[in-house]
Simulated assay, not measured.
Amino acid sequence: MLSNFKINLKNIRKAMNKENIVENDISTHESEDVNEVANENNNIIEDEITSESYELIINDLKQKNEELQEKFLRLFSEFDNYKRRTAKEKMDIMNIAGENIIKSLINILDDFERAEKSINSSANIEAVMEGLNLITNKFKDFLSQNGVEPINSIGMPLDTDMHEAITQSPAPSEDMKGKVINEVQKGYLMNGKVIRFSKVIIGN
């Protein structure tokens, strides 16, 4: 009977071990299932977060793009207005400068007209010549005030940047060979730039 009890006890232990193994297997499977479900949920959440993030980024980029376009159009409009304004101001300055020049020339013309009347009515030639000299000097001063200066040519070596040699003539002296001995038409500089070449005769 004791032996039967031992056998039963052994069978009970085996049964309990099997039950523990089954329970462990069940726990393991349940744990794996729980982990798998958790991973799937995490993936779903990550996908949702990623999708929402992309949408937020895209919307943010669209908004920034619209802001940049508005800023560009505003700057372009301001620059276009600036160009028009500066062009108008430049034109106004040129017109004012032109008006001032014309006014000065009109004043000199008035002097010439008065001199012409004096020539016709005066017998004093010296007084008339003095008046003409005053007008000439006044006109030269006007040119000088506007940056216009005559080119000094007589006795200078030929300079093709300023002189236009129209002919040659025997030089009055040896040292005048290759130099300007006569000036047919005076040349002028304006602010250092040649606006009319001097027409000259060169000694040979």
Rank of each mutant, 00 (worst) to 15 (best):
K199V: 01
M129K: 15
D92P: 07
K6Q: 11
M176R: 12
N146W: 03
N4V: 14
F197P: 09
N39I: 03
E48L: 08
T136D: 09
D92Y: 07
A97N: 15
L61M: 12
I151C: 01
S27G: 03
Q69R: 11
D175E: 09
G187E: 01
S121P: 10
F142V: 01
N204L: 14
L2C: 05
I201R: 01
Y188K: 01
T136L: 12
I93F: 15
I108W: 00
K179Q: 09
I26N: 02
P157G: 05
V194S: 04
I151R: 03
L132I: 00
F139Y: 06
E40F: 00
E48V: 10
P172G: 00
E67T: 07
N152P: 00
L68M: 13
N24D: 10
I102W: 02
I45R: 05
M91Y: 13
I49F: 12
N59G: 11
M156G: 07
Y54T: 15
M190H: 09
K62W: 09
K186T: 13
S173C: 07
S198H: 04
N20T: 10
N124M: 07
Y188T: 02
M162H: 11
I21S: 12
D161T: 12
I106Q: 03
S51D: 14
S104K: 04
D60Y: 11
N100C: 14
A123I: 11
E70A: 15
T86V: 15
N42W: 09
G192Y: 00
I21G: 02
A15L: 09
K83H: 12
E19C: 01
K6H: 09
E113W: 02
L68S: 08
N137P: 01
K71T: 10
N120I: 07
I201S: 03
I154H: 05
L189S: 00
I57L: 15
E70F: 10
G98R: 01
I21R: 12
I93V: 14
K90M: 15
Y54L: 13
D47G: 08
E32M: 14
E78Q: 08
K199R: 05
D159E: 09
F79I: 07
M190T: 07
V22N: 12
S153Q: 03
R85W: 13
D60G: 13
K14S: 12
S173I: 04
N137F: 06
K179F: 10
L158H: 05
T50Y: 10
E126A: 15
N137G: 06
E99S: 13
M94C: 12
G203A: 01
F5M: 08
A115E: 04
V180K: 01
M129E: 15
M190D: 08
E78T: 02
A15V: 02
D111H: 04
I12F: 12
A38W: 00
M156E: 14
N182C: 08
D80C: 04
I119L: 14
G147H: 00
R74V: 12
S198K: 05
A15F: 08
M156Q: 14
G98P: 02
K179Y: 09
N81L: 13
T28F: 13
S169R: 13
E116K: 06
F79K: 06
N107D: 13
F76C: 04
I102K: 02
Q145I: 01
N59L: 07
R84D: 15
K88E: 10
T50R: 14
F5Y: 15
Y54A: 13
I202S: 00
I154M: 11
G155D: 07
L75D: 06
D161Q: 11
E164Y: 12
E66T: 14
L134R: 14
I201L: 03
K90V: 13
L75W: 04
